[in-house]
Amino acid sequence: MEETELIKLAVDGDLDAFNQLVLQHQEIAFNVAYRIMADENAAADATQEAVISMYRKLDTYRGGSFKSWFLRIVTNACYDELRRQRRRPSVPIEPETNDGELIESPEWLEDKSAGPEEVLGTSELEEAIQHCLSSLDQKFRVVITLVDVSGEDYESVARIIGSPIGTVKSRLARARQKMQYCLQGFRELLPDQFRHNIEENDE
């Protein structure tokens, strides 16, 4: 079934058609969220929120690219999630019992991040890029993610972030410039092409 037909059915209240649309776009939505949030769980939360929000807002869909519309909701959900994270107080590192004694080896201290084998499997370049991406301001991060990760054109990005194309262009240029500066600190980790370019710049 074609996307336009699925959209029409979904707008009419067909949940299966809606879920079909979700399945078509959930991967790109989750990846954009992941690059913005830099955390898998937070990205999953944001994506799920975006899907629920999209279901509620289906009747406000006025045509155009469904993917762009979905990504707009996803980026907004990411902004909301980032705001929520800032509001939530962080858990103390050394939790205490009611008697004031330190809890030894609490369950939550377990390192759930990637183990050594997994680390070996992950690309060093990816880590470096993700680190630099995370250090960017939100507005730059979103634009560079949408253009370079999701492969959206400028017009789509302008629609997604709700800003003029000129803003998209300037934000993208600054984001890329900042990324290049940041990646200079990871020259040993980067592939030959990166290293070569950075070394030439330093001469």
Binding site: N19, V22, E27, F30, N31, E40, Y55, E126, V149
Partner: peptide, 13 residues
């Protein structure tokens, strides 16, 4: 070239 992350679960409703 960043690898595409697999979705942790289906986001369908």
């Amino acid at each position: 070239s960043l690898p595409v992350r697999k979705v942790p679960h289906q986001f369908t409703l």
